[in-house]
Amino acid sequence: MVDSKLVLAGQTIAYTCYVLAIMALVAWFAYRVTREGKPGGVRPGWFWSFVSLLVVIGVSLHLITYNTIPWVALDLHRGSAQPDTTITIAVAEHRFQLPADRIVIPCGRHVLFRVTSADLTYGFGLFREDHTMVFQMQVVPGHDNDLLWEFDRAGVYSIRSTEYSGPAGYQMVVPDAVEVVCPTGNAAAPTSDAEATP
């Protein structure tokens, strides 16, 4: 599965190019609008072409992401999917209760994270060692909050609550809580207390 870091890199490049282009356009407009120009104003053809462009962008953005970001289909159809592994986590009183000190996950498996809250709304996010985010979801009390994911590279990840749950919530971090191991991976051999159970 494509790593979320790659998706973010793509987004960064696309948005940066757009920002530079639109700033240049508005600067050019600001300069030209103060100069003498041909009378007659803007032709409606330009307007309709612009509208068409917006429609194409609006429609194609989600089609492109649906077809290129692998977790979208996985997520939308997770109700009918059969996970290889389920990891159940409970949250209460601003603390994560994990099934083990370090959860070990093999590469290439469909892992379902099922997180429940006994009191407040929290968040559940997985973060790389360089603090970048792998994924997150909301953890709403009284509901099943589950997320299906597939890891394709070895690594050690931290868990962090991604939703505000009161002033104590910012401390809801469990460093190095998840380890992904791949047969040919470069991560350290598992030092786990428990392997995620199918």
Partner: peptide, 14 residues
């Protein structure tokens, strides 16, 4: 609009 996407929201929300 970018964050209002099922795919990108997974890594942008909050």
């Amino acid at each position: 609009i970018m964050q209002a996407d099922v795919g990108l929201n997974r890594i942008l929300h909050n």
